[in-house]
Design a protein around this nucleic acid. Structure first.
Lengths: 330, 330
DNA sequence: GAAAATACATGTAACGTTTCATACATATGT
DNA sequence: ACATATGTATGAAACGTTACATGTATTTTC
């Protein structure tokens, strides 16, 4: 048994075409080769149905043209959207994407980073809320949304400005008493910028604001309890609500309706992320839109840029407001 | 410049530990090595922070421990769920997943298949509705949901049985006049099994059934038009509706409410897929559940099985019915 | 205590590619 | 017609790993 795989190699092509190995390599890589040689090689390639072995290429080049994307899962529509746009941005540059789902598990996240290093992926783009993640110095890594330390570039949308924008919008739309709802992660001890921005916006616009933050393990019913406790004689104490994500906003929208509150007549609702679930207007909410496609492009740019930057940048991309039916407009 | 990459190799480790190259390899692969050698090698590995280069491994072994998953996108929650479960199934077997999003584009799909062959991924799992896709004989390929030809195994849920089950459920729940709604793909000329099963079920249970199928390019408003045309004096002509996917069911749920129909009081609604969007009861519908995790396991089993089967199987996994608030129970 | 058997570290070849110095053949100049 | 210059195909080395045949040191047996 000479060969275990039936796949033809460059050597086979060279023999078939009656040329040297190097000549085949040149043809495959589009380097200048005499025409008579070129056609002979091309014929042989077609005849044998030859495909380059990119693992041999990778070994030689020390490059793999593959990048890993670390996200918690593909189920959450926000992560799914990130995966989608990162994939597009990588494909544009002839890169492939190794998708690594971590389920928020720090152990798995660390394993994936090591695995990515072993695979010699050319870099890692990580959307993780794990501040303890250890990334080797020489591993190209770009963080999404959360800064991972002084050595690692991070691309995020303007979370603070988005929170502020939400407050201003609610103020513009006539709200007086608003609430901020959030599901916090127990692993994530960073102060929430959307909350900070919202608070700041409320302060400068004179809105009274109440916060309700539950932990990620807690049942979402806590929001229902919170809201129902703020209803007196059928009337909710808030005329505006800002939810930290669209996903939460959708849930709260259902909760509010179940509690007999009309949206946007009685209470206006703004989410964050700009996820258009299923492309349906039924699942819209008014929201602060993250420029996910720009974020993806920027991540890939930073990851694949030839020269490492002296100081890794913290990129902050602008957000916009989009009407989605849960506010009193237009 | 001796080395372009700073990553240490087995040779470096061997030199550091003062042992032979082969000994390092054995330690790395857990093969029996004398204890004194083992500790020396392990120390050297730690000291140099050595990581195996799996591209060299792949080149040597002709195996990459990577499989490609071909799906249209990660945005559709059904595809996202498939990606999630396939990933889990692959990880269990120490495989990694290369995710390839095709956007339903036959050209891209074909490109990805070739790319996958070049990468020498050990196999491809494809969820595609492209009957023209050319897959080389010797490329391990498993299709999800759609049979791709006599040479390629396919794993699907019991679509026909699911359609039938939906009809039976609606009949059991007292429906008399039902409708089937579907968004069809222009590329996909295969008869729809869910539709066939539903028709069959309606026939055997004496339900009158109307079909409305729009093409994937068409605006979803056509469903709204269709439904509103079947309302006379505020009363819908149907007391039960079966939608070909949950996604469509969610849309139709919104449409029905907008048309002043109560679900499930006036009309009962059943979807298909069993996707629990955002884990929220607000976005549930009663549905025929695909065993996505079983499908994923089965795909990976078939893909990685050592011995090729004489006749590639068409696996059909059973579906179940799940109550989700849009039918009159319990 | 010497010969045979065992155990295990060693080092080299091979995987399929790219690259670079070499060699050859053709074209140019005198 | 001869020497030089040009262009281009050639083939060997190298990338980092694994596996196997070889060699050496230790243990066992009578």
């Amino acid at each position: 048994m000479k060969k275990q795989s039936f796949a033809p190699t460059m050597k086979d092509v060279a023999k078939e075409a009656g040329v040297a190995l190097g000549t085949v390599s040149k043809v495959v890589n589009g380097l200048p080769v005499g025409d008579s040689y070129r056609v002979r090689v091309e014929d042989a390639i077609r005849k044998l149905n030859y495909q380059v072995n990119s693992y041999a290429q990778g070994l030689k080049a020390g490059k793999t043209y593959t990048a890993a994307l670390l996200i918690p899962n593909t189920i959450d529509p926000f992560f799914a959207a990130v995966a989608y746009h990162i994939n597009i941005a990588l494909i544009k540059r002839q890169y492939r994407m190794l998708l690594c789902c971590t389920d928020y598990d720090p152990r798995q996240e660390q394993e994936y980073v090591v695995m990515a290093q072993q695979n010699k992926v050319d870099g890692i783009i990580g959307l993780t809320y794990n501040p303890g993640l250890i990334v080797e110095e020489n591993t190209p890594f770009v963080a999404i949304d959360r800064p991972m330390g002084p050595k690692i570039p991070c691309v995020a949308c303007d979370n603070f400005g988005g929170g502020q924008l939400a407050a201003e919008k609610l103020a513009d739309l006539g709200c007086k008493h608003v609430a901020f709802l959030r599901v916090g992660s127990s692993l994530d001890n960073e102060p929430n910028k959307r909350k900070a921005g919202f608070e700041n916006g409320c302060l400068s616009r004179g809105l009274s604001c109440e916060m309700k933050i539950i932990n990620d393990g807690a049942p979402y019913e806590e929001f229902e309890t919170f809201l129902s406790e703020h209803i007196r004689d059928g009337k909710l104490a808030f005329d505006g609500i800002f939810c930290v994500t669209d996903r939460l906003a959708w849930l709260v929208l259902g909760t509010l309706r179940r509690l007999g509150q009309r949206v946007p007549e009685d209470v206006q609702l703004i989410g964050f992320d700009g996820i258009r679930a299923f492309g349906s207007i039924d699942y819209h909410c008014s929201t602060i839109v993250q420029p996910i496609s720009d974020i993806a492009e920027m991540c890939v740019d930073l990851l694949l840029r030839e020269s490492a930057l002296a100081k890794p940048p913290l990129v902050c991309l602008p957000v916009t407001y989009a009407y989605g039916g849960t506010t009193r407009e237009p």
